[in-house]
Amino acid sequence: MELVIDRLSKQYNNKIAVDRLSLKLKSGVVGLLGANGAGKTTLMRMICGILKPTGGTITFNGMDVSEEMFRDALGYLPQDFGYYPNFTGKEFLLYMAALKGIERNAARKKCDVLLKTVGLDHAANKKIKTYSGGMKQRLGIAQAVLNDPKILILDEPTAGLDPKERVRFRNLIAELGKDAIVILSTHIVSDVEHIADRILLMKDGQFVFDGTLDDVGMDLEEFYMQHFEEDEEGEQYE
């Protein structure tokens, strides 16, 4: 199981969002850190096949990410997770299951299990518009793992969750990372610190760090802030 990114670029008019990135990922949790506008979301969208790169390729086990079979192995929680306000949580999951090609009976069972896992079983038949922010986020996580993905892309998955829920989901993500490639983008450095097997730090569309927590050699938050400070200094000079 291998995700290969080769000289990947994305340019919007004059702005280069992702600049010739190359990377190979195997199963495990990859923490993706970076300031706003660093190119994290653009990178993840391209990995999901919903945004075409300007240049370069992304393949998963030799498959191009634009192929249907790749999407069959993909789980994705976008940063701006969308939902249908008039659907109940269960209806939404069943719809997503149908989109992911899961057979109806299997989908029903899976939905029940996942709703329980994310603590939404009591609210399964309530409309999503009545859910709190944390409940919506949990529903988003449930839909991402519906198809037992081999590659799971999570963009700010723990945003809006209370500390107890965050710890629960951290553990769930770590568990999923044993058999799948999990790319976790977040601003919460401690989440990455606890569960990431590999850390990627992104700045101006490029990786400025690629290594393990041991390679960092210091407190991750401090390391992360150092890069921010450099950024701010650079901006001041400009």
């Binding site: 096949g49 701006d80 997770f81 969308g82 992911k100």
Partner: peptide, 10 residues
Amino acid sequence: TDALILSSRY
């Protein structure tokens, strides 16, 4: 919901 739909198999 477009991102969710477009990244799913069907």
